[in-house]
Design a binder for these strands. Structure first.
Lengths: 263, 263
DNA sequence: GCATTTGTATTGCTGTCCGATACGGCTGCA
DNA sequence: TGCAGCCGTATCGGACAGCAATACAAATGC
């Protein structure tokens, strides 16, 4: 009976166990989301809604801990290396990655195309591992990069495991950005793709994220049957017709997913 | 007065601007370093040196913020997805990566071997970007993975930019693990490699991190001439004799480093 | 079925964090 | 040359947020 209803967070009840200082400090780290470069103290204060004083003290603390650094020209702060230590611990300990890693390598050798593993997080898929990358813009290859669940083969495959009500919630809550001219933005078109995915057991996406790219995704369920993440295999339309790519990839991909089992 | 002996912190000066709660919360995140799996509350408390109560409150807070999660079987806590958001922001904003990324891609196309960028952090090199990986153990390919500066071509190249006194400090402070049977662990042998690197402008490492691997590294200096990071190019000894690999890689690598300039 | 875990919840005291305010060093505009 | 507006930094008394001890339900393992 412990599982009451962890309040939807938004209107948070007075929580006597919540550490405000820690939350504020974390919000300083998060204030770099979407920033275009170093942030000054005033900018951090503005982005977090904190007092200049509070921001100052938290920045000071994070600096002593190594997580923030003053840029070399002294004109602002940036996230610093210890962040990557957390990254490594997260990736290293992630149960899905641990289970999937040997099979990802095997899959990569079989299909000889790019193999990615991304983690399901509602409206977005978060890249956790990219075994190879050829053509892409560099920053798209970075760990932690996200793409809308509605715009990738892996996302479709993950969404296909959810009940329709949840899919609708995601489709309506999110604005659907057109990453390419061919990206599907019509909710019904996306629902249709999810239906196809349910029928076929895998998703096929053509030029949804990047022009010239075809990708096939399959979801990895967790023990409860909900999507934990997905594996994509991506190829070039210059080398593959979509159907040929499907025939090339699906058998190995399906076997990999089967081997991984439930995460 | 109030500022007597804070906690048994590492003998640091009393710092009225230091936010203890934030530091403790971060230490909870860091407590997963080296963990073999999920941690229980008691383990977190033990690893951080916090009271059970304190650990509880901080874990509670980090959970509400999404950074920690209770494992599905309810038997411990793990780092969670928002960590990767910080990762992405860090990588995206890192000045060295921003400068280097186009040239890394170009270099990769020219040499057609694995190209890595790692960041210099004293005794260790931290992987920030791996453009391709063929043979390695999966977890060695993860972002945030570290290798001793003394055991890699990139590390040698970075150390070569430092004054000898600092090199000695690193060599004596660190225990030098033998990652392979051929890893150099004798400080003088490493000093000799650094000398060669200074003479040649690049480092060549054979089977220092992984058997069967040859790697060439060049350092990227910051504005002050200190090492900011290094680029490695790694190939297989099955395909390349070390000297042939050197001739193949060094011209393109040197050009890339020249183009990147000072970070 | 007792002993020891696990995660969770409550409470009164106190010491830590709060935020207004002030300072010195820059940059750039006049 | 000087003022205005940033920058990051430092200080200080008061109050409120976080502290640690303690208790509880549920799961685990003898």
């Amino acid at each position: 009976m412990t599982q009451k209803a962890p309040p939807p967070d938004a209107g948070n009840a007075p929580d006597g166990m919540f550490n405000q200082s820690l939350a504020r400090g974390i919000s300083v780290l998060e204030s770099f989301r979407g920033a275009g470069g170093p942030l000054t103290l005033a900018q951090i204060a503005a982005r977090t809604g904190l007092t200049r004083s509070a921001a100052q003290r938290l920045v000071h603390t994070l600096r002593k801990l190594g997580y923030l650094t003053l840029t070399q020209d002294g004109h602002g702060f940036l996230l610093h290396l210890p962040v990557l230590d957390l990254t490594h611990d997260y990736l290293r300990l992630n149960p899905l990655l641990r289970r999937a890693s040997p099979f990802l390598l095997e899959l990569r050798q079989q299909v000889r195309e790019r193999v990615d593993l991304s983690l399901f997080d509602g409206a977005r898929m978060v890249y956790a591992s990219r075994l190879q990358s050829k053509r892409e813009a560099f920053f798209a290859t970075l760990v932690g990069n996200t793409v809308p669940s509605t715009s990738t083969s892996g996302g479709w495959a993950a969404l296909a495991l959810l009940p329709d009500a949840e899919i609708d919630a995601i489709l309506t809550a999110t604005t659907l950005p057109a990453l390419t001219p061919r990206t599907l933005t019509d909710p019904d078109a996306i629902r249709a793709e999810i239906s196809k995915t349910r029928r076929d057991g895998h998703a096929l996406a053509v030029e949804q994220v990047l022009m010239g790219e075809v990708a096939i995704g399959m979801a990895i369920p967790d023990a409860a049957g909900r999507p934990a993440g997905a594996i994509h295999v991506a190829g070039s339309l210059a080398e593959w017709a979509p159907e040929a790519f499907r025939r090339h990839v699906v058998p190995s991909l399906a076997e990999a997913v089967r081997n991984i089992g439930c995460a």
